[in-house]
Computed example of a mutant assay.
Amino acid sequence: MPETHGEPVVGFIGLGIMGGHLSRNLLDAGYDLVVHDLDQDAVDALVEQGATAKESAAAVADAVDVVFTSLPKGEHVKAVALGDDGIVEGAHDGLVYVDMSTVGPSTIREVGEELDAAGVKTIDAPVSGSEVGAREGTLRIMVGCDGDVPAVCTDLFDVLGSRTVRMGGLGSGQVVKVCNNMIAAASLVSLSEALVFAEKSGVSREKLIDGIDGATGSSWVLDHRGEAMLDHDFEPGFFASYQYKDLRIGINDAQEYGVPLPLGSTTHELFKSLEEKGRGDLDAASVLTVLEDMAGLEHEY
């Protein structure tokens, strides 16, 4: 258990594209940071910048006041939180667990219930803003929490993002994040259709982008992914596999609540095709290639 005098000791588990940037921002803000990841290179890079490494999630939890996770899938969150050498084994009075992954409401509620029995307060705080937002500290943070959000978390969220919105009880942040990603994925598909339509009809794709910029068809996707889609530059900021995973969560949870998702289901199938084509390690904007395949267009990427 940490001995704190003033600022909290913070833990971070999951140092990938998002977690690595978030951890660096916490270090830059002056927090004592304790980290763990299976990727030793990612750990070593943060240790060089001042972090302390621990050999397990349990060891991180035991050493900190607040522990964050940013992990790919719900199964990883369950293992890190509840498995052998997991956070639950390092639980102590006053520990707060904040998960910034996208895992769906049922998963985080299950984790929260078990951690609550061990005296740990759980908060779901998924984020939007992609790698750029994580690096620049401009993420949108969607918070779900039973009871009051601890003040220490509010301060930490201010470091990690530019806007934090309380959504409701535990799991509500996950609902909003899944909805957000369904909208973003549909926007990627819609822009992909437009780019293919323009090319097949003989209109410059560059002119298409220029023409709809600022018009009613403009969007975050156009502003942040339009140029990359023109260039077929699909270096991942957000892996297509992760987008597909988030859509699966949305489809499954919508069935649980009896919600029809006609557009979401079609979008899900297109990302499933992208995954089956072996392109899941590209950026989610690469769904464009599925539409191009369907239209008989060939591009290098």
Results as ranks from 00 to 15, higher is better:
residue 21 H to P: 06
residue 254 A to E: 00
residue 200 K to M: 12
residue 238 F to K: 15
residue 48 E to C: 02
residue 229 M to A: 05
residue 221 V to D: 07
residue 61 A to M: 09
residue 281 D to S: 11
residue 266 T to V: 10
residue 264 G to H: 05
residue 44 D to H: 12
residue 1 M to K: 11
residue 174 Q to M: 14
residue 254 A to Q: 03
residue 24 R to K: 15
residue 107 T to L: 13
residue 133 G to R: 13
residue 190 S to R: 01
residue 97 Y to W: 02
residue 158 D to T: 08
residue 170 L to V: 05
residue 261 L to G: 02
residue 172 S to L: 14
residue 92 H to Y: 01
residue 99 D to C: 02
residue 258 G to E: 04
residue 296 G to Q: 12
residue 124 D to A: 11
residue 165 V to F: 10
residue 97 Y to P: 00
residue 118 A to K: 13
residue 133 G to D: 09
residue 287 V to H: 08
residue 209 I to V: 15
residue 107 T to P: 08
residue 27 L to R: 09
residue 17 I to G: 09
residue 127 V to D: 02
residue 191 L to G: 03
residue 95 L to E: 04
residue 60 V to K: 02
residue 281 D to C: 06
residue 40 Q to N: 12
residue 66 V to W: 00
residue 286 S to K: 07
residue 54 K to N: 09
residue 283 D to P: 06
residue 72 P to W: 02
residue 266 T to A: 12
residue 270 L to I: 10
residue 74 G to M: 03
residue 122 T to E: 01
residue 160 L to D: 00
residue 110 E to T: 13
residue 279 R to I: 08
residue 111 V to S: 07
residue 177 K to G: 08
residue 104 G to Y: 11
residue 287 V to K: 00
residue 250 G to N: 14
residue 147 G to R: 04
residue 114 E to V: 08
residue 25 N to M: 06
residue 210 D to E: 15
residue 103 V to K: 05
residue 170 L to R: 07
residue 108 I to G: 05
residue 222 L to H: 04
residue 136 E to W: 05
residue 296 G to T: 14
residue 186 A to E: 07
residue 155 D to L: 10
residue 241 S to F: 07
residue 263 L to G: 14
residue 216 T to A: 13
residue 24 R to C: 13
residue 86 G to N: 04
residue 55 E to M: 08
residue 207 K to D: 10
residue 102 T to P: 15
residue 271 F to N: 13
residue 66 V to N: 02
residue 131 E to T: 11
residue 113 E to Q: 04
residue 266 T to Q: 13
residue 217 G to K: 08
residue 244 Y to N: 15
residue 260 P to W: 01
residue 293 D to L: 05
residue 278 G to K: 04
residue 247 L to Y: 00
residue 175 V to P: 04
residue 185 A to V: 06
residue 185 A to R: 02
residue 89 E to W: 06
residue 124 D to R: 04
residue 52 T to D: 12
residue 237 G to H: 13
residue 277 K to E: 12
residue 250 G to C: 14
residue 184 A to Y: 10
residue 74 G to P: 04
residue 296 G to L: 10
residue 85 D to M: 07
residue 93 D to M: 03
residue 171 G to K: 07
residue 161 G to V: 00
residue 98 V to R: 02
residue 123 I to Q: 03
residue 118 A to R: 15
residue 275 E to W: 08
residue 50 G to L: 11
residue 180 N to G: 14
residue 70 S to Q: 08
residue 160 L to K: 02
residue 250 G to V: 11
residue 282 L to I: 03
residue 48 E to G: 14
residue 91 A to D: 01
residue 173 G to C: 07
residue 248 R to H: 14
residue 175 V to L: 12
residue 263 L to H: 12
residue 77 V to W: 01
residue 180 N to R: 09
